[in-house]
Design a protein around this nucleic acid. Sequence first.
DNA 1: GTTTTATATAGTAAAATCACTATATTCATC
DNA 2: GATGAATATAGTGATTTTACTATATAAAAC
Lengths: 108, 108
Amino acid sequence: MVGNQTNISPEFIQKAARILKTLGHPDRIKIVEFLEDGEKTVGQIHRELDMQQPIVSQHLKVMNDRGIVTHRQEGTRYFYSLANELIVNILNCLSEFQEKLNSGEWNF
Amino acid sequence: MVGNQTNISPEFIQKAARILKTLGHPDRIKIVEFLEDGEKTVGQIHRELDMQQPIVSQHLKVMNDRGIVTHRQEGTRYFYSLANELIVNILNCLSEFQEKLNSGEWNF
DNA sequence: GTTTTATATAGTAAAATCACTATATTCATC
DNA sequence: GATGAATATAGTGATTTTACTATATAAAAC
């Protein structure tokens, strides 16, 4: 058992970077967090998160292209949901981090 | 126990986004992964990861400004190390993800 | 078939990031 | 104090993001 534990493969680093970079936007974090609750329509996100509709569609398109969300269409409505649980894991990491921040254990 | 589990605070979302976005670069992921092994000088990163020295310094500066790494100086050498374990957690999330990718459980 | 509703797409200017080259700074050594 | 090594900083085009406005599309309702 020599070397480090994570040891991410070179090919994967490209994909990982893309995912992290994509998640690195406040609106998109909010959307992903909202989607943890279950699938939502564009309109729900637009109204409940108070973002302009084209912005929401744009973010969803980017996240869809990069495998973060998927969607199904029903009539004129598009239901978006998280594509996999990796995303939730990352947010959970951040939540943990927030707790440590709040408790004063770390500071930024 | 109503609502979702993570529930990240609005103020924190800005910081989280910044961290994720900063980590969302292949070179920086490589550097962070390398630093998991312990503190390294700029020259070590430069040579062992085969990146140009100013590029390395630039990435380290950005990550330093955003609380991802810290450094100490010893003579003309600068030793950089990870600022906290959140970063490792996130990489571990990605490693897990990679395994699921490799096993064919998910696809991107 | 006209109007509404829901969503996507196009276009665009401003801002941020990126990769690279050149140079400055700082410490150590002779 | 001159030289070399290690690292930081400056400057710069090219590319990517971002936020926004306007418009297109497609299904629903009347």
